[in-house]
Design a protein around this nucleic acid. Structure first.
Lengths: 136, 136
DNA sequence: CTGACAATGAGAAAGGTTTTCATTTAGTAT
DNA sequence: ATACTAAATGAAAACCTTTCTCATTGTCAG
């Protein structure tokens, strides 16, 4: 029941929020921009403003329901938070996004932050490349 | 002689290009935004348009003279390319940027790209945190 | 059921970056 | 040195994504 997630986050249960959650859950593509979500809503027949989509996604991020990836240069995509930390591989040709986890890298990051006296709050690793399909 | 670098890159030797190079070389802060470069030029008494600064920086990037870092959320900074690959630690309070290199991480990235069938073209690792000075 | 406060929509605004286009300039050929 | 051609520049407009404003609507506690 998604309504519970919203209440737990201190957010009122409104149609836009339920619908945005629904899009995030039902869309086959896991990584969606605000624009993607907006278009999906339109395609679904929901008349929800783009500003609301942005607001809702930001609130979801604050509530820990989604995470935001800052893809290269002023363009963000959102993914449903599933509890597992992971990093991303991005295809520069088709924009496919794949995920991976690597404990060795995670550990090294912690070590480096400590070494430099940084109290790490977050980290982002993006590997850009050409995916298998696009190499043909 | 910087003129050589420009010629080698197939760029005409113009005053804006020489001055931007000069700023990048002489400014104590290694990471500069287009706006920073523009202001430094003004402070130097050079009347060079912001659009030109952006163009020049992009050309320098294409020529391999500088690299662009996409700091989170539509804001880029540039640094003179020195041949050494390195990643960055960013202080979320004071915006200080520190650099580091880690061969273990580099190696793991190559392994992961290979594993996923990606032909890696680039990668970016940002560690966000609070630097020593800002923790006080 | 009703009131108070949060949420929404539409459009304007913001912020960084890119484009347009007329003018100027560098580098080559004369 | 001079003239020519293509490239570079400046100023302003355009762009794009994202945020804000404000009047209106909706949610939910009492």
């Amino acid at each position: 029941m998604e309504s519970q997630d919203l209440r737990k986050a201190g957010l009122k249960v409104t149609l836009p929020r339920l619908k945005v959650l629904e899009i995030l859950e039902k869309t086959e593509q896991r990584h969606l921009s605000a624009e993607d979500v907006y278009k999906a809503l339109l395609a679904m027949g929901e008349e929800i403003g783009l500003a609301t989509v942005y607001r809702v996604l930001t609130q979801f991020e604050d509530a820990g329901l989604v995470s935001r990836l800052s893809i290269d240069g002023g363009h963000a995509v959102f993914e449903l938070e599933d509890g597992t930390h992971h990093d991303h591989l991005l295809c520069v040709r088709c924009n496919r996004i794949e995920e991976f986890t690597d404990e060795v890298i995670e550990e090294r990051q912690r070590a480096i932050a400590a070494e430099k006296g940084f109290e790490m709050t977050d980290h982002a690793l993006y590997i850009y490349g050409i995916c298998q399909q696009c190499q043909k």
